[in-house]
Nucleic acid binder design. Sequence first.
RNA 1: GCCGACGUAGCUCAGUGGCCAGAGCGGCUGUUUUGUAAACAGCGGGUCGUGGGUUCGACUCCCUCCGUCGGCUCCA
Length: 614
Amino acid sequence: MIKNTDDLYAMRHSLAHILATAVQHKWPEAKFGVGPVVDNGFYYDIDLGSKKMSEEDFATLEIEMNKVIKAKQDFEKFEMPIEKAVTWAKENNQPYKLELLNDLKRQGTTAAKELDSLELGLDVDKESKVTNVSFYKNGSFTDLCRGPHIENTGEAGAFKLIRISGAYWRGNEKNSQMQRIYGVAFNTKSELEDYLKMIEEAKSRDHRRLGQELDLFIFSDLVGSGLPLFTPRGTILREELAEFSNKLRERFGFQKVWIPHMTKKDLYEISGHWAKFSDELFLVKSQETSDELVLKPMNCPHHTRIYASKQRSYRDLPIRYLETTTIYRDEKSGELGGLNRVRSATQDDSHVFCREDQLEVEINNLLAAASELYETVDMSLRVRLSYRDDSEAYLGDKKLWQSAQKQLKNAVIANKLNYFEEEGEAAFYGPKIDFMATDAIGREHQVATVQLDFVQPERFNLEYINESGNKSQPIMIHCALLGSIERFLSVYIEHTAGKFPVWLAPEQLRVITLNQEESTVNFADKFANEAKSRGIRLEVDNSNESVGKKIRQAELMKIPYTVVLGDKEIESNRVTPRIRKDMMVTEKHDSIGITEFLNTIVNESKGRVHKSSF
RNA sequence: GCCGACGUAGCUCAGUGGCCAGAGCGGCUGUUUUGUAAACAGCGGGUCGUGGGUUCGACUCCCUCCGUCGGCUCCA
C-alpha cells in the first residue's frame, strides 16, 4: 500500500522532469524553477522570458512527452559537490537553479529546511554546511532534484496537461512571475479518466452555474464585482439558514442586537484594525460633517460599544450578543470569485462577554450548536484547536492562554468532536477552534470558527465589577456558525448539487395542472391555498404545456415534491406525489390524502430532515 | 494587485477585415386540452462588454477601462 503511494509519487515526480524535457526540447532557452508533485499530479515552473506558453502548446508538449516516454530513457542519479553544481547552473544558464544553490551554499541547513520542500537532494556535513547535492539525468535533460524517480521514462503512467497559470518565483509577489504548467497523472488510463470525470462532476456542481440555473443569485456589472445580489429564491435559502443558526444560539441565551453598517474610523484606530487592515476598508466621506467613516469589515468593535454602554456586574455575565449582518472588505480584484470570496459578506456573528471561569460552558454551548448545525446540513465536521507557540507574537497573559486552551480542548472532547491540535495557528489575540466540513465529493472547507479574544477587551477597556467590588476584564468569544453565509452557500450548493432538503428548498412543492379546464384550475387554486396556509412554499404551473414538459421543468429546478392535479385527484381528493430521487427511501409510492400529504411536508420541514417520509 | 485566457440575443454557444450577424433553449401569439423529463406553427429579440485608435471599411486588428474565468499572492 505504502509502496504504491511511493511509486505513484515517483512517477508523478518523473513526469515533471519529462515535461521539462519536452519544454527544453521545444524552447532550449527555457529557464527552470521547481517541479514538485501535488495532489493528483505535478507541475513545473518555467520562465521563457518574453515568450509565453499557452494551452495551445499542450498538444505538441504532450506529443513530445510521449516521445520521451517511448524512448525509455533511464533516470540516472548522481551527486555533485555544491561548488560544481553552481558552475553547472551558470554554464547552463539556469538562474533560478543558481539562486537555489547559492542560498544552500550560503545558509546551509536554514535554507535547506525551506528548500527541502522544493524537492532538492542534499548532503549536509557536521557544521550544517551543504556539501553535495543530487541530480537526475534522463536523455539530454539534467535537473537538480532529490527524487525519487522511476527507473526509466517508459514507466510513466497516464497523464494529461490540464492548465497553465502565472506563479511567483518562490511564492513571493516581489519576485518575477513564471509560468506554471499543471499536469495530472495516474498509474492507469482508467484512473485518469475517473479523475477527469470527477472534475466534470465538480464542474456540474459549480455553485456559480447552479446559482444561475436555480435562480438563486446574480452579479451586476453596474453594482460591481464581488457584490452578489440575491433573488427571491436565494433569499429564502439565506434566511432559513440564518434563522436556524440563530435559533441554535438563542436557546443558550443569546440576544439579537443591531448595529449600523458604518462607523467613524476612530473605532478601528482603538481596536487596532485600522493599523493592520486599513487598505482593505471601504472609506465613506460625509458631505455634511468632517466625519471620516468606513464600512464595517467586522462587528466586534461595534458590539463592545453595546457592552460598554452600562456598568456590568459579575452577576450579569455572560452577556451574549447575536447578529446576522453584512461586512464589507475591499478584497484585491483578482481574489474575488463566485460567492466564495466577495466584497460584501453576511456573517451569522455572535460575541460572548464572560468571566474566565465561564469559558468552558460557553464554548461547550457554541460547539453543541455547531455540531447540530452541520449534522442537520449533512456534512461531517473536524475541528482544529489552534494554540499559540512560544514566540512573542501573541498578546495577553500566558497563564490565561494556557487555562483557555485547556478549556477549549475540554469542550471539544465533551462534544465528541473529531479534532486535531496545532501550535502556532492561533490568532495573535487568542486561541481558536476552526471547523472544517467535508462535502459530498470529499473536499474539505473551512467554515465556522470559535475564537477567544483577550485583546479587544483590553483595548476597549471593557470591565465588570467582580465579587469583591473591584474592576475585572471580561473575555470575548467570537463565533460564527455558518461563517459567511455567502461562502457557506458556495460550499453547500456544491455539497448538495442544488438538491436542497425540504426545509431549505426555495420551492418545496410544484403543482402541475393537467389542463386548463375551469374545474382543474379551481381545484388547483384550492389546493394551493390549503398548502400556503400551512406555510408551504409552492408554485402552481398552469401553463398550456404538456404534463411531461411541466414535470421536466420541475425536475430541472430540483424541486422536492411535484404533484399533477386532474380529474383523478378531483374525484378522489388524493394525490400521488413525485418525489425527488435523492430523497426517496422506497421506490413505490401510492396515492395519499391531500391533508396528510401537506401535513407531512410541514413536518419534514420543521424536522429539517433530508429524506422523504413517503 | 500580478500572469494568462475570455466577453456575440434572457441562457448555452456558432460566425467573418466587406451587403442587413446566426442556431437551440427561453419569451410572446395562435393551434392543441395534454397523466409524470421537451406537442406544433408563427413572431419578436443583439450599439457583437466600454471608450478610443488603425483602415476606404472593424463584431473581426491595436490600446484603455469594466467584467468573468484559471492560477499566484493575500484572507482580521
